[in-house]
Design a protein around this nucleic acid. Structure first.
Lengths: 206, 206
DNA sequence: TAAAACATTGCAGGGCCTGCAAGATCGCTA
DNA sequence: TAGCGATCTTGCAGGCCCTGCAATGTTTTA
């Protein structure tokens, strides 16, 4: 029926929850895009999604969470995907490959993500919360990178690679959403990773 | 007398303000290090610094600001310092040089910064707010990097370099504060920047 | 010393977020 | 199908964060 493939949805209850969560996210993004973060209250978001304010906080721990979406999910899939890349592939290339999944997810919800990036760029406090920006999410990636490289997680290298590639990904996403010409997200990520792997060589002056 | 060289302090009023600000920061860091961010109220911080809660908000826009310190100051000095590096120096090296000033400032207040990094690591939500983590601060750096490289600020390169080196710096600071052996901060920053310039080559397996 | 400039404080109030308990809805089974 | 347990929604009370305003105190300047 409504099966979307990978969804473990079973009954009406799960469907309702998914709908409610999506409605809250969509209402939050739309309202904040219109008026700005400070000019939208949780009460208004809940109103627009037709639930009580108290219910809002059953879905999201804070107002921002309704805007930035699900971090842990992306991170978990990235880690899982990374484990399937053959160990002889260099780390940067492996991370880039594992990111394909994330890139696809983002492109699949392009409208939502453009709205989201718009909101995030207008409210910079949200940016670090996107895509492996928080330390919890990073820790998992650091560990799997350390295992792949074959060094201790306390060695500086895995953490450096994780922090730096996270920054590169956020950079690519920001460019993607900002440019009206809309280059393909995958190309922008490729470009950023290529620059990283090459040691950030300065571009030719025009 | 108490002149510290670059301070534009004039009268007693400025001295008092500086003392109050320092007292609030110190109280906030100490209390949060002891109990955790959520277990410390602004009222308690103000109490410890012997000012009213209302006065706290005359100094800091929010509770977190008392913990993470002054971003804009570091950023402004970094930008100014960057302008003094000869233009033929490659960007990464120039940024590394300009960071010497920040590194020195951090080392000069080592105790405070160790406490601060401890707090930040225990409360990861604060990490992105350190050292060019927010978009406002980054914008200024992006522009000066763009001018130095000779490309348009909308070209992806300056923003990528800024984001990535910011991540590298935060990484170095985190390692610096975490390691009981206390390697020198400048060495850790050097190491991170060298890895960036070399394209993040994988370390030898032990 | 008087006036101007600025800092501190209290107070009122809106918004965020949480714990708790009552009621509604859903899924399963006798 | 009736009912039971699990889960979801909601209201309410309450603490904390943060802000604007107006009164009071302190420093600087004339």
């Amino acid at each position: 029926m409504t099966s979307a493939g990978t969804e473990p949805a079973s009954g009406r209850r799960d469907r309702k929850k998914r709908r409610t969560r999506a409605a809250l996210t969509e209402a939050a993004l739309r309202l904040v895009a219109e008026r700005g973060l400070a000019q939208v209250t949780v009460e208004e978001i809940s109103e627009a999604a037709d639930v009580s304010p108290r219910t809002f906080f059953n879905y999201f721990a804070c107002k921002d969470d309704a805007l930035v979406g699900d971090q842990a999910g992306h991170s978990a899939r990235l880690v899982a995907r990374l484990a399937t890349v053959p160990p002889e592939v260099p780390v940067l290339a492996a991370l880039r490959t594992a990111l394909d999944e994330v890139v696809d997810e983002v492109r699949a919800e392009r409208e939502l993500w453009c709205l989201r990036m718009d909101v995030v760029m207008r409210n910079p406090a949200l940016l670090p919360r996107l895509l492996a920006g928080n330390a919890e999410t990073e820790r998992a990636i650091v560990e799997v990178v350390a295992a792949r490289v074959g060094v201790d997680p306390d060695h500086g290298y895995p953490a450096l690679v994780t922090a730096v590639t996270g920054a590169a990904l956020r950079h690519a996403m920001t460019r993607w959403a900002a440019d009206p010409g809309r280059p393909d997200l995958a190309d922008l990520v490729d470009e950023a990773f290529a620059a990283l792997a090459a040691g950030l060589p300065q571009p030719d002056r025009p």
